[in-house]
Simulated scan of single mutants.
Amino acid sequence: MTAHQFTLSVPATPTAVTAARHQAVDAIEGWDAGLSTGVVHTAELVISEFVTNAVQHAAADPVSLCVRLDEGALRIEVCDACPDLPQPGLPDPYSESGRGLFLVAVLTDRYGAEPTAIGKRCWAEIDLPTSPDQEIAFSLPLQRS
């Protein structure tokens, strides 16, 4: 499989999130790499969550988005200038936010956040099916006690 990469500098504005998500998904689909709809939709959710969080915490600093397709996995990285690492967890049942990183954790095969020289990098990887017939299956543990 040919390696592909898409990078984008995103202004730290709420309206930029939608544009960044659309541009990244258009690039992914343009690679003509035979990615399943499930992989593309998962990537779209991860991109949206990571870029939204970065824009909310980056103040006026730009955010960088990188999507890379290598043999075996699709990797999404978002860097911003805020040094605070995200702390994923289960939100309060009445909270209107705080579920995004939980979904990233459930839908991706690996994810994390790490400090950089100027802030942090949030990343996630989605493993690709080993055969064209293999479907990506997942379940969301949504039971509450």
Rank of each mutant, 00 (worst) to 15 (best):
R99C: 06
T18R: 11
L90D: 12
L128G: 01
A105K: 12
E44N: 13
F102T: 05
C122A: 07
D61Q: 14
S9G: 08
R75T: 15
E114A: 15
D70C: 09
L85Q: 11
Q134L: 04
P93Q: 06
E77Y: 01
A60K: 14
Q23S: 10
L85S: 11
C82Y: 09
P83E: 12
E77A: 12
D80I: 04
R21M: 07
T37Q: 10
G30I: 06
T52F: 05
T2E: 15
E125G: 03
P93K: 02
L101Y: 15
A59G: 13
E71V: 13
R121K: 15
R144E: 06
H57Q: 07
P132C: 01
Y111H: 15
A33M: 03
G98P: 00
A105L: 04
P115Y: 04
E96C: 05
I136W: 07
N53R: 07
G89H: 03
L103P: 02
A60L: 10
G72A: 08
G89K: 02
L101C: 02
L128C: 05
R121L: 13
R21P: 00
Q5Y: 03
H57A: 07
G112L: 08
C79A: 12
P88E: 06
W31D: 09
H4T: 03
V106T: 14
G100F: 09
K120N: 07
V46S: 00
A105R: 13
L65W: 00
E29H: 05
R144G: 01
E71F: 11
T7S: 15
P132W: 01
R99V: 11
A137R: 14
V17Q: 01
V55P: 00
D84T: 14
D32T: 11
V17M: 02
V78A: 03
Q143D: 14
T18N: 05
H4S: 11
V51A: 09
R21D: 02
H4L: 06
L142H: 07
Q143W: 10
A105E: 13
G30R: 06
S9Q: 15
K120S: 05
G98F: 02
D61P: 01
